[in-house]
Design a protein around this nucleic acid. Sequence first.
DNA 1: GATCAATGGTTCAACATTGGTTCAATCTCA
DNA 2: TGAGATTGAACCAATGTTGAACCATTGATC
Lengths: 215, 215
Amino acid sequence: MNDILHRIRAGSLMEGQQLPPERLLAAELGVARNTLRRALSHLEQEGHLVRRVGAGTFVRVTGKHNGGTLPSRMRGASPAELMEVRLIMEPQAAAVAASRASADDLKAIESALTSSLTASSLGEFEHWDGQLHLMVFRATRNSLLIDYCQAINSIRNEPEWYALKKRSVTEELCRVYDRQHSAMVNAIRDRDPDRARQAMAQHLGTVRDNLMGVL
Amino acid sequence: MNDILHRIRAGSLMEGQQLPPERLLAAELGVARNTLRRALSHLEQEGHLVRRVGAGTFVRVTGKHNGGTLPSRMRGASPAELMEVRLIMEPQAAAVAASRASADDLKAIESALTSSLTASSLGEFEHWDGQLHLMVFRATRNSLLIDYCQAINSIRNEPEWYALKKRSVTEELCRVYDRQHSAMVNAIRDRDPDRARQAMAQHLGTVRDNLMGVL
DNA sequence: GATCAATGGTTCAACATTGGTTCAATCTCA
DNA sequence: TGAGATTGAACCAATGTTGAACCATTGATC
């Protein structure tokens, strides 16, 4: 019984979604329908499920994790979680961009880099930093990756993230970021995915270390 | 019902554009007009559609592209885009899981593997395949990564992805996946992030190659 | 403005699918 | 061996889907 409960929970879908029909789910789990029903009954009593005769069995909508937008999800995550995801995604995106960017993409990337190199305030630097990352993601031509980057950029402009950045950034650090950005852009221009990946990983590693240093 | 909603959304036009007449759209979707109307009514209530008697049904003009949920974003992406993102995220998640999984996490992973190894139907295999991936992501303890995997799992249960999978999968291929899964789980159990990353990358490479082979 | 075709809106009855209940047989384990 | 758990099957109640007919409104044409 505990085994069945565990396996049903493990198969939990997102809120509001429908479980397979009992007869089908029982077959999938390799148990009798009565046995499954007993376990479902427990889950219903615990409040995880809603069961409607003639309609089906659904994961209860609590409104807590209601499948919000990507930015809202990011807001609910910790800085460490977000940086971890960035470190997973952004080096790979840079590598993809190195092999996939068009001439126009390269122009957009170089233009954003130039603007960030000449930025005269943190706000301006932040803006072009964000644009540079977005242009790299645009060059991947993968809509999901672009969505991700846009979500990051929308978060970074919010007061609490901006304040966090402000506390961790120095003039010298911007110069470090500039050099890291340049290395990454050079690698993309040279169509070298490995170098692009490494350069972006190094850059984000530095960003993370500095952010974590002020938390 | 969810299936119909999904298929209507998949055929979604640009803002302001008109959907086909109900009688035609119902025939295209292979459902009764009443059933279609019920789904359209939901979409109207959600504010996505505007319906005018004698004129037709239109996509609402919102003037803004607000961010959708992660699953809805994934639905709008191509299989190639989604597989590319999976290939970026899942090997890294396996590596993180290798160093971060608790004893209970390992049990859950092993349990899902065992169930997938003994699965006697594609449906059962698919179910446990999804669970295995989710347990690995749960072991990362990163809420954004877990969100991502849940979104993938909710998409994979949808009819068109299921149909795509069904066309690409063979008994022999399930055996290949079993071996790849086992290698990945062994690496996680051995706390070897590099091996875990490689094993998951290999697995997903095989998945992608087979999916792309039927498109 | 009148007419007609096309569109969404409503209602009805029949059938299909879903969860709910009950019963008897079989299995498991102390 | 006996108690409890699990199983398979049959039947019931509730909901969803279907096909068809009819109604009200809109848009195009003359």
